[in-house]
Amino acid sequence: MNERPNLNQAGFGNLAPAPKGLLARGDTSGRIRVVGRSVSVFYGEKQALIDVNIDILDKSVTAFIGPSGCGKSTFLRCLNRMNDFIDAARVTGSVEIDGVNIYDPEIDPVQLRARVGMVFQKPNPFPKSIYDNVAYGPRIHGLARTKSDMDEIVITSLEKAGLYKEVKDRILEAGTGLSGGQQQRLCIARAIAVNPEVILMDEPCSALDPIATARIEELIDELRQNFCIVIVTHSMQQAARVSQRTAFFHLGTLVEEGETSEIFTNPRQSRTQDYITGRFG
């Protein structure tokens, strides 16, 4: 926890954030950031996720693939405790981020979610201006003392999300007036504005056209240098393109997890092979 890199000091204020950000996080590269142990999720009587064990590395993109209903989104939502909002959902096992179990009763899920950002399947900008969308999180968490600090956070976040150039002349107009791809990048800017350690993406491109998708994929690749990113995707090409590690889920279990190149060229499990070659799913 105490070695949590402070992107706010390191990255913000510098319009070309990558080198400084890299330096600040250099010591965590390749480190295991998130550890899931025996994670099971029950929706009422039904078990949606069965005994998942996984290590997720920092500064890399981990893709969760698998057929619909396999539990990959459910597991993703365990990582920032969004499952708490489903009354019938019950999580057992442990999820540790930087060595702290986030299901510990002493952990406040509200604070946790500031450390674990999330981007959703459908772009969901707030019905506010572009500026207020990005400033929403920093305002809540008191990340900016002055107006100019806030301006800087907003502009840097928009730049990191590759949106600043397109919106700089209408930053006070409604975020809902942007195109779908721009809205999704706004949501990414909003998530990184609170300076999270982990960013979860739940099929972030499924509502976008191919060009907007390509733009987001590039962005994910850039963000990898500063964040630990977990992405759920239905597109195996996307998983192959953007991720360094891939986890294949099937029927609520984690079938196989490893280097993306390994999973796609030389899977150990026959079920993984069948899925990635399109024999089912």
Binding site: N80, M82, F85, Q111, P127, Y136, G137, A191
Partner: peptide
């Protein structure tokens, strides 16, 4: 919108 807000730690 609720999810988006909660996911930001609101």
């Amino acid at each position: 919108l609720r999810d988006g807000s909660y996911a930001l730690g609101a």
